[in-house]
Design a protein around this nucleic acid. Sequence first.
DNA 1: CACCCCGGTGCACGCCTGTGCACCGGGGTC
DNA 2: GACCCCGGTGCACAGGCGTGCACCGGGGTG
Lengths: 208, 208
Amino acid sequence: MSRPGTRGERKERTRRAIMDAALSLSEESSLGALSLRQVAKEVGIVPTAFYRHFDSVEALGLALVDESFVSLRAMLRDVRRGDPAFDAMVDRSINVLVAHVHRQRAHFLFIARERAAGPPAVREAIRHQIELFEHELATDLAGLPGTDPWSTEDLRVLSNLIVTALVATAEAILSAPAAPDAEKAIVETARTQLRMVLVGALNWRSSP
Amino acid sequence: MSRPGTRGERKERTRRAIMDAALSLSEESSLGALSLRQVAKEVGIVPTAFYRHFDSVEALGLALVDESFVSLRAMLRDVRRGDPAFDAMVDRSINVLVAHVHRQRAHFLFIARERAAGPPAVREAIRHQIELFEHELATDLAGLPGTDPWSTEDLRVLSNLIVTALVATAEAILSAPAAPDAEKAIVETARTQLRMVLVGALNWRSSP
DNA sequence: CACCCCGGTGCACGCCTGTGCACCGGGGTC
DNA sequence: GACCCCGGTGCACAGGCGTGCACCGGGGTG
């Protein structure tokens, strides 16, 4: 089996196959409810061979978290490129989010699930990555025009709110019915929400 | 065992014990990873006796969703009582949320987990209940002064955003470290966020 | 060419899982 | 007082689970 390639390549290929199998199997039922034997059967290896690649199912989960957030960072870079006006930013952010959710559907599903229901270490890893994301967003926002009256704390709070809304939007898209109108409505809602939040932030210190 | 009481009472007591056991067992690992036998052992009955009360673990889950949202509705009523000024509403909403999260910690943990990782029917039930909650919030908001320029759609979008923020706040409190300062920071963040959102909404139609 | 490293194998173990079935015994009802 | 309803019991079964162990065979290296 797995005919060609050097030894390292073959190992890497099996590792990928394990991660892909775990990703697709965990689309229904969480990682904790996922059995090593199921994964092995899906990959086409014997159960004990799993240990040649990961110490445990939990370690597999952590690797999947890492991988998922690599693509998220690529997403952030996409958003950063372009016109730094608020309205343009909002549209671009949401478009990029939607595109990435579709392209990396399995990863997003995995993160959405394990964020709430994964093993503690996995949950913590996801929480930490989202926190990093928030922090990056805060520094990006600080570089934008019109943000002078915001304190560091305001920026943190604002970024947290925006990220929360974006996460909720991603989750909504993931569980939306196949009908294309449903997704359009979600996207439109998210767009309005981000604009509302920005209007609120811009009027923030000048309000009672 | 379970000495006193009429037959109906004894049955009800066992049913409660099953639900409590499931609640406490599912604090780590999701409902899907929960075994009927574990629950039965925790309750102190033989596994097959479980079927006298629920058709399946999933049915148990649906019952738990119902029960959890009963207390959520009580929470809503608490918020409705009192001064209908925005700032007062914000403070009251968050205080009530925090109090209920502590009093019904197990229920909130259950909902937070199963919302993302439960069996499809359970997820759907939770989604539906949250949608009802959003709808009630929208009609409440419509009755407040200063909301004239908001369309029905704006109200829906706004309610959705507020509920999203509140859900995120509840989840943050649930996974906050024991240190009391951590929770205080979360609560303060949520308060600022709700105010920002309301400032945004109030300046909504009058902005570009 | 010979040696070894190492991903993958096959088997075995003890444990836990859901569920079917016949059965019990006491409250509830006629 | 006799009868039945029904929550709880005990046993059994077949299957899935994680994991330990000895083993294989081909690429990689001296």
